[in-house]
Amino acid sequence: MIGHRVPDRDGAAVSTPITISVDGEPIEARVGQSLAAALIAAGTVAWRTTPRARRPRGAFCAMGVCFDCLVVVNGRHDVRACQHRVAAGDVVESSPWPDGRVSDGGDRG
């Protein structure tokens, strides 16, 4: 199944479950997990809408290079979900721009 988290193979204790909020919904994550991994494990593959074509995006490189996975975390904009380590009580908002608005308002012709 998608997002299934494998238990550590050598039997080490699986890290503690915590709850974070994503667009108002609680999801379970684990201490030390990246936010991108927590979202994918919870079955979410897209959490950003592109400004121009309004296409869904999620993680792509998962190593901080592509900036596709940007989210708002605890009110802080432009956080790479793959670089943010989740902490209990994190409040994540997936789309910084309400529907119908374009990020930069610019006409790129």
Partner: peptide, 15 residues
């Protein structure tokens, strides 16, 4: 990216 898949699968144990 292949490395992204590797980071999520091996690094974080997420399918």
């Amino acid at each position: 990216s292949a490395g992204g898949g590797q980071a999520l699968a091996k690094g974080e144990g997420v399918a």
